[in-house]
Design a binder for these strands. Structure first.
Lengths: 329, 329
DNA sequence: TTGTACGCGTTATCAT
DNA sequence: ATGATAACGCGTACAA
């Protein structure tokens, strides 16, 4: 079922049908006949053909590390809502945390979509190389990127505020559970926030209090075990993600420590589970869905501006956060 | 950058380049030149053009009620992993629980993708009408559908087993928190499981124990409040989703009831939070990700079989479940 | 207002 | 082995 068949059935030429579809000038009688035929047949113009002709795909590609992650899902929720309102459709690239797949999608989406939203963890030179080869705008979410537009949370201050909160509550020995520095936002920024907060309060950072693992749950568990086996265990533990904090709480609870009386625990991100833990996890709320919406709007704006690339985009967006006091501190 | 330019740069015709790209016979020297040019330029064939010519889009459309829902995210995770291994890309339609948007996506995807996976809640006659108009296979997930392939969990028996488990634990007065019957799987099947389990154990169902709300968290909270204000409150409560069960637990905990001593609580679905509640929520595990993977495989199989529609597909898939004993019963 | 003819990038057919 | 050409479905400049 194509536009020619519709034209035949309506007794007009395909140009007339095309005009009808695209708000062009069509006489009333032709208009009605076409309308009727289209309703009967349920005809919808093929988007691939439209894209071919117009050089606009009306498609946006999203690349995410793992779609079943709560944070990714929330970002995507924000993105898709905005985009579908604007008539865009969304192609999704789930990389399962594989950097190779990130590269693949960056290549595959290249001339298949009008723009890309890239939810990043680690940014390597190869990434920049691929960004260069893009002839469409790209917006990076969750990691700072040089020369390209990006949307991030203020990881440094969020972390710093969290530590200051712990210090305010009287803690002087604060354990830190972090992740590798390949992830700048989570691995470096949040650690720096921790270190700077201590320094400003004249508390000497102790290297044995600083534990680095991966993003897994078990990592939170095991590193807490290690912290608590120290000669002088910390009175509070800050984990750079809620997921880690939950692993941390598990260890403490299983081993009879009272939270927050024996050990206070603080996370970052405010995933849904945080509210349901016992005690409720004190953490920092991040606005992932709003962030997704913002990235979508920014991307659409870049597309409409007609630029071939979003390189050298001047301003970035740093999202605010909100400290959530619950009962684990 | 298109195939013609590559051809020019390599000093051959575009047909030769096309053959090079598609495993055709090309002389070694031509081959090498083309390879070189493609590497330099980073050329990738435009998928829209390929689709145009081949009548295959290599795209699959997924329609989900709400992407940021844990169950949906897990289903999508399963789907995308399977599909991307097979070289398909995924177009996502997030309907935000709007039935109108479901219709929209069913129309829009119609001649834009090679097949559709539809995660459904409510199936109306209008849905069937749109299914009819499809000229591509569709697989329905999470709801039974007449004449079309679908992949579901065994809601009836899952629910029944849950109730039997409660009965085994000595409960005779079991409250039920359900949802509207527009959702057949959750609203009807799970309720039937409850009723039949009681009947088989010669326990008379009491209408005041059966409370119906929506899917929200608050619903679980409020309906529990109502159940507990009954002259003779139940000794156990079964909620048809974990989300409702969690709302239920919240009410009980806030009001000083001990779980499971005063009231036992059981859910269904085994969302992540369930494991972290205190006490851990006893529930029934559903295999959402595997379900997604299965639906993807089935759809690919249908596509490869070359049928224009998946209507009258004979066999459906009913997934098993697993009872998870934790501490709320 | 309507219709004709062409082009978008690719693949398939057919000669050469 | 290679190249010219048609075809896919649609939009649009141009002619009528």
């Amino acid at each position: 079922m194509n536009i020619i068949e519709i034209a035949k059935l309506a007794g007009v030429s395909k140009s007339t049908v095309s005009r009808y579809l695209n708000d062009g000038y069509v006489s009333e009688e032709a208009s009605e006949k076409i309308k009727e035929v289209i309703e009967q047949t349920g005809f919808v113009p093929r988007r691939q053909a439209q894209a071919m002709r117009s050089q606009k795909t009306n498609l946006i590609g999203i690349i995410v590390p793992k779609i079943s992650t709560e944070t990714a899902a929330r970002v995507i929720e924000g993105i898709t809502n905005e985009l579908s309102n604007a008539g865009y459709e969304v192609l999704i690239g789930n990389t399962s945390q594989s950097i190779e797949k990130e590269f693949d999608y960056l290549k595959v989406f290249k001339n298949q979509v009008d723009g890309i939203i890239f939810m990043a963890t680690e940014i390597t030179p190869k990434h920049y190389e691929l960004f260069e080869q893009l002839h469409i705008p790209i917006v990076v979410v969750a990691q700072k990127v040089k020369d390209y537009p990006c949307i991030v949370h203020d990881d440094y201050h969020a972390s710093k505020d969290a530590i200051n909160y712990l210090i305010d509550k009287g803690h002087r020995s604060i354990g830190f559970i972090g992740v590798g520095e390949y992830d700048v936002a989570v691995g470096i920024e949040r650690k720096k926030g921790y270190l700077d907060a201590l320094e400003e309060q004249k508390i000497e950072a102790q290297s044995e209090y600083i534990q680095i693992g991966d993003f897994s749950h078990e990592s939170g568990f095991n590193l807490t075990k290690h912290l608590m086996s120290l000669p002088k265990p910390p009175s509070a533990i800050f984990a750079v993600t809620d997921n880690l904090a939950i692993g941390c709480m598990e260890y403490l609870k299983e081993n009879g420590y009272k939270i927050p009386d024996d050990v206070a625990v603080m996370g970052l991100g405010d995933i849904k589970i945080a509210a349901y833990m016992t005690p409720g996890l004190t953490t920092v709320h991040y606005h992932f869905q709003t962030m997704g919406a913002k990235s979508a709007n920014l991307l659409m704006q870049l597309i409409q501006s007609g630029k071939e690339s979003s390189k050298n985009y001047e301003s970035n967006f740093i999202f605010n956060y909100r400290l959530i006091e619950r009962d684990s501190v």
